[in-house]
């Protein structure tokens, strides 16, 4: 089965992350699982790339971070849980509009529907 790799997702990763967080707060690995699940196993992200995207979103105030202290069954550094902010929700709505426009346009050009 053909997969969609990271290069094709460039420019969309931030909207994808916001979309994953719309389902509720999550840490990095959980965000990735949600994306893979939503992509029916066809998305092949370079997993390290998720974090720069999260840091950019955090710096822009679109997500905020809550630290989860190590508890029972988990040791090591505090885990960071990412949560969508109001600004992030607005950005997601805008991202969806942009995406719909992009799909319509590309469909007309590449899909030969025009």
């Amino acid at each position: 089965m053909k997969t969609i790799d990271g290069d094709k997702l460039r420019g969309h990763l931030e909207t994808m992350v916001l979309s994953a967080l719309e389902r509720g707060e999550a840490h990095g690995l959980e965000i990735l699982r949600r994306l893979e699940h939503a992509g029916c196993g066809l998305l092949r992200l370079k997993e390290g790339s998720l974090y720069p995207a999260l840091y950019r979103l955090e710096a822009a105030g679109k997500v905020k971070v809550v630290k989860e202290q190590p508890g029972e069954g988990r040791r090591g550094a505090p885990r960071r849980i990412y949560r969508l902010t109001t600004k992030g929700r607005r950005e997601l709505a805008k991202g969806r509009e942009d995406w719909a426009l992009f799909v319509r346009t590309m469909d007309a050009v590449v899909g030969g529907l025009a």
């Binding site: 990095g28 390290g48 090591g76 505090p78 960071r80």
Partner: peptide, 8 residues
């Protein structure tokens, strides 16, 4: 960065 990437 180190902590988060290592955990992942």
């Amino acid at each position: 960065m180190r902590e988060e990437l290592l955990e992942h």
